[in-house]
Amino acid sequence: MASQEKITVYNLADLKNTSDDALTNYLTSLKFTQSHRLTDVRLALGYSAFLLSAACFLWDYKLGFESTKYLTAAAVAVYTILNSALTFWIFYVEKGTVYEGTSPSKSTKIKVSTKTNKNEPVYHVTVEVEDLKSKGGKKRDVLTISRPFADWFDAAGRFVAQPFQTALATGVPAIGEVDVKRVAAVTKKEEVGGAAAGYTPELLEALANAGAVGGEGDASGIDAKKGGKRRKA
């Protein structure tokens, strides 16, 4: 898969696309249920616009301009509307969303959007978390993670899944809850570095769970390279 394939590390679009695909794959592997609502609406808008223009082309080709003038005018108007709706949908509704889905326990709904800024190899991830279980109005949380791509691409341009997944699992409690192992790997690092940023109750809970699993993770040597570094520190 992606880890076998090398990309050009100077190509920001490649970095982003590979990471976006990996993000979807990761969440799918965690048994998140993906919702394709946004993509489907976009495809529906786009294809209906395209079919309309194809039909317009056909009647223009068969019947000529003069006899189909008003129909063509209507088609142009409808096409403009559909295309504007599509543009609106992409810029104001999708806003760079690459994943939308519910957690395996059906307790949270997450919406992940990513973006990069020109000439800056940093992956900006925004996660909207919606708590489906909470009573009395929906609880919505917005989390942001910004990490350099160098964290999960090696110099040759190969994607390395582990640090990528760790960044997500640690940064987003809703993911961390499901993939405790990945959070565990970071807990130790943060203890060493003494960096404790923005703990939420969910994260603390996840961290508590992580303690038990952490030893196991180290022993099984999931990440021998990282483990070695940690011991040195």
Partner: peptide
């Protein structure tokens, strides 16, 4: 989606002409 992007480039050019 990628096929659609290509199609939309053609159809938008055609519809602008129309």
């Amino acid at each position: 989606a990628q096929l659609m992007n290509f199609g939309l480039i053609l159809s938008t050019a055609f519809m602008m002409w129309k």
